[in-house]
Amino acid sequence: MVCCLYVISERKNTIVNTISGASEISKRRRAATWFGYAACAWSLLFSLAHFYWGIEAATTGVLTVPGGNIHLENGPATGSGVILAWVVTVGILCILGGLIALFRIRGERMSHGMQRSATAVGVVTMTAYVVYCFTINGFAWIIAPGTLCVFGAAISLSLIQPWGRFIPRWLLLLLAWLGGVIMIVHELYGGILQGMAVSGMIGWQQEHLMIGAPATQAPLTVQQFINQNLIWGSWFLLGGILFCALAWLARHSLDER
């Protein structure tokens, strides 16, 4: 009788632990899904803003941004370089969209080698695009963040969507962590240096040198510093937090979650 009661008690404990564990996994999965869609929305919204600024730069030469307009020194961006930048950007977006469609539609039918090859194409393409933008600079860097944000949106979705399991998870998590940490560190580093320059602890020329800004860039007033950090600082910190939280919550595969 005692043995029977002991066995029943153990089974009850096992069932309770199983239910509790399943509930915890379900909560983590819902949280990961929420952060994934939030990171995707953040990325797409910022990408649309950059593409809009690219159109403004090529037509009016004035960028409409929160806190005041930015006038380009040489007026509207024109020439073959601008056309090439748009063509390359559209081409990159088409390749990225094609790869996502391939994983969604034929992911399960693809061999392991094909999945790896498709992933490699995406990584190599985006790496080449970043190198191209760093090399060309100028107008390309007005629209380049928009393309990178679309890439970030794809990463966030692949971490929470079933088709994402066809992409090496360690790579997705690495990219999500890198994106989130870079945004947070970049904003904190830049904000601290700007605050030191505004308060007179360091000179503006030294601040420009330390953040890689042009030496001719005008110093910020206290009000401009506050506005810039309230708007852009908060925005970048939000994006960094979303991607880091997503990477942490989605650190297990979809099957394990």
Rank of each mutant, 00 (worst) to 15 (best):
40 C>G: 05
41 A>G: 04
41 A>W: 13
41 A>M: 06
42 W>F: 13
43 S>E: 02
46 F>T: 15
46 F>C: 12
47 S>F: 02
48 L>H: 07
48 L>W: 06
52 Y>C: 10
55 I>L: 03
56 E>P: 02
56 E>Y: 05
57 A>T: 03
57 A>M: 04
58 A>N: 02
58 A>H: 04
58 A>T: 00
60 T>G: 08
61 G>N: 08
61 G>L: 11
62 V>D: 06
68 G>A: 12
69 N>H: 09
69 N>M: 12
71 H>T: 12
73 E>L: 06
76 P>W: 03
77 A>K: 06
78 T>S: 09
79 G>M: 04
79 G>P: 02
80 S>P: 01
82 V>L: 03
85 A>K: 02
85 A>E: 02
89 T>W: 00
89 T>A: 14
90 V>N: 00
91 G>D: 14
92 I>H: 00
92 I>F: 01
92 I>V: 14
93 L>M: 14
94 C>H: 08
94 C>P: 01
96 L>R: 01
96 L>I: 05
97 G>W: 05
97 G>N: 08
98 G>A: 11
100 I>C: 07
101 A>Y: 12
101 A>W: 07
103 F>P: 03
104 R>Y: 10
104 R>C: 03
105 I>K: 00
106 R>P: 00
107 G>D: 07
108 E>D: 15
108 E>T: 02
109 R>Y: 12
109 R>K: 13
110 M>G: 08
110 M>C: 06
112 H>W: 03
114 M>Q: 11
115 Q>R: 15
115 Q>Y: 03
116 R>M: 14
116 R>V: 11
116 R>K: 11
117 S>C: 08
117 S>H: 12
118 A>S: 13
119 T>Y: 05
122 G>H: 06
122 G>I: 09
123 V>N: 03
124 V>S: 03
124 V>D: 00
125 T>F: 03
125 T>S: 12
125 T>M: 12
125 T>K: 05
129 Y>L: 11
130 V>H: 07
130 V>C: 12
132 Y>N: 10
132 Y>H: 13
133 C>Q: 08
133 C>Y: 02
134 F>T: 14
135 T>F: 15
135 T>E: 03
136 I>Q: 15
136 I>V: 15
137 N>M: 14
138 G>M: 12
139 F>K: 06
140 A>E: 14
141 W>L: 14
141 W>V: 07
141 W>R: 14
142 I>T: 07
143 I>N: 04
144 A>S: 10
144 A>K: 04
146 G>S: 07
146 G>Y: 02
146 G>P: 10
147 T>K: 00
148 L>D: 01
151 F>G: 05
152 G>N: 06
153 A>I: 09
154 A>C: 07
154 A>E: 05
156 S>A: 14
157 L>W: 01
157 L>G: 00
158 S>R: 04
159 L>E: 04
162 P>A: 05
163 W>N: 05
163 W>A: 10
164 G>I: 02
164 G>W: 01
166 F>H: 11
167 I>V: 10
169 R>W: 04
169 R>S: 07
170 W>F: 08
170 W>P: 01
170 W>T: 08
171 L>W: 11
174 L>D: 11
174 L>N: 09
177 W>M: 06
178 L>P: 01
178 L>M: 08
